[in-house]
Design a protein around this nucleic acid. Structure first.
Length: 428
RNA sequence: GCCGUCGUAGCUCAGUGGUAGAGCACUCGCCUGUUAAGCGAGCGGUCGUCAGUUCGAGCCUGACCGACGGCGCCA
């Protein structure tokens, strides 16, 4: 059995059979047009009254969108057909003729989300899923080539990474567990065995966020490297992002077109990324149209305005320690700032990645934990890393859904993931 | 946690205190090249719920219920 894409690439001269779902159907007297879709593409099929029995013609003409069907016929080039070729039907078999498909041309954002299980069949979402697949695969491919190992940290944990308020509680045999909000601390344990590690796993945040770029369950791609500093980490990340974007451009040009993604704009991000200290960003902030003072954090509005001045992502480094969590390594030349970086995507998309050098001195880490009100005994295993062969190291966390959001130039993160989980959505 | 918007037909939405509307979908016709097409006919609603004001409420007022959007937090 051929796929539709096979047929379009190598149109056979003999009769072929295809199977799939009815994407569009319209009848016009003595001929009926049906656009068939499968996983790979769409092709217009035409039934002529003269080619098949009258009853079969009627049956065909009354097909409904998303009915499942197989068709047999001859393929010919036809410029009037949506994908350039057309199959003239000699026979067909209906697996199921369904009632009217709930998802039609006029649907609201909310209705679409309620029917996401059906909406993912659409050409748009088919393209989104294919690009997601490339992004996830490319992330792994690149790091494996760089000598990283793919590791599997636990998702049910007993300690917070960022802060306690945003954890989901789960009953745990009379005790209480939490769904992980970041695997960073576990990745740090792995580097003492494997040196370069990464994981792609879900993270959970019980934040009552209601924004265009927050999810309660999101795909977190995290990496951790032994013996590397903040600058070196950014070098790896920049190559990684370049690799992911190149892969998407190479493998998903057709899908980018379906989504009306400006590929030239995306190609801009294959150029080197600007690196800018937080303090310099603040100094220049007025010229970016967003006057800020030292100590201000970058929110959605700030990032959007600042990034409207850039065509490629930028790294913002050396944030004041007060703006970030406790585990970041202070800058030796100015201990009030830390050796960290955020990667802000262009075209108004903002933060997609955060990373930096971790504190590797035991006493400093203890001090910072105390300031943050964290109990030593909860983090005994994390502290052990600083007791037994501690080394300088860095890591990062990349929001894959956010990366997909930007790469596909979508309007909100719930359109970048098939089954978004947000404060108000647990179905479907 | 803060600010805001909306509940009318299966879907998307109009609706000015005075007889409940349109487009799409669906059903039945018609059409030899359509592009979620076109033409004709048909089908379809206790206007979120409860109360109040009024001669009269989808429309005004209040409460409740439900949904959605933006910000903070972050990835």
């Amino acid at each position: 059995m051929f796929s539709i894409q096979d047929i379009l690439e190598n149109p056979p001269s003999d009769e072929v059979a295809l199977r799939g779902w009815v994407y569009r159907i319209r009848s016009s007297g003595k001929l009926s047009f049906m656009v068939l879709r499968d996983a790979t593409n769409i092709i217009q099929c035409v039934a002529r009254k003269e080619d098949i029995a009258e009853e079969k013609f009627k049956e065909f003409s009354s097909l409904t969108i998303e009915s499942s069907i197989s068709v047999t016929g001859k393929v010919s080039k036809d410029e009037r057909a949506p994908t350039g070729y057309e199959l003239r039907i000699t026979d067909f078999h209906i697996f199921q003729r369904n009632d009217s498909f709930p998802v039609s041309k006029d649907i609201s954002e909310d209705f679409e989300l309620d029917n996401r299980h059906l909406w993912i069949r659409s050409r748009e979402f088919n393209a989104i899923l294919k690009i997601r697949s490339t992004v996830f695969t490319a992330f792994r491919e690149f790091l494996l080539k760089e000598g990283f190992y793919d590791v599997q940290p636990p998702l049910m944990v007993s300690t917070a990474t960022e802060g306690g308020a945003t954890l989901f509680k789960v009953p745990f045999f009379g005790d209480e567990a939490y769904l992980t909000q970041s695997s960073q601390f576990y990745l740090e344990t792995f580097i003492f065995s494997l040196e370069k590690v990464f994981t792609v796993s879900p993270s959970f945040r019980a934040e009552k966020s209601r924004t265009w770029r927050h999810l309660t369950e999101y795909w977190h791609a995290e990496g951790e490297m032994a013996w590397i500093n903040n600058e070196g980490m950014m070098d790896v990340e920049e190559k990684l992002i370049h690799y992911i974007i190149s892969s998407v451009i190479e493998k998903n040009e057709a899908e980018l077109h379906i989504l009306n993604r400006d590929i030239d704009a995306l190609k801009e991000s294959l150029k080197p990324f600007t690196r800018m200290r937080y303090s310099d960003l603040i100094k220049n902030s007025a010229s970016y149209g967003m006057p800020l003072k030292y100590g201000d954090d970058l929110g959605a509005d700030e990032e959007r305005q600042i990034m409207s001045n850039f065509k490629t992502p930028i790294f913002v480094t050396h944030f004041p320690a007060s703006l970030k969590t406790f585990y970041h390594q202070p800058d030796p030349s100015n201990p009030k700032e830390i050796l960290c970086h955020d990667l802000l995507a262009p075209e108004g998309y903002g933060e997609v990645l955060g990373g930096g050098e971790r504190i590797w001195d035991l006493n400093l880490l203890l001090e910072r934990m105390k300031e943050s009100g964290l109990k030593e005994e909860d983090y005994y295993w994390y502290l052990d890393l600083r007791k037994y062969g501690s080394i300088p190291h860095s890591g990062f966390g990349l929001g894959l859904d956010r990366l997909c959001l930007w790469i596909m130039h979508l309007d909100k993160i719930t359109n970048a993931i098939p089954y978004p989980r947000t404060i108000r959505r647990l179905k479907p």
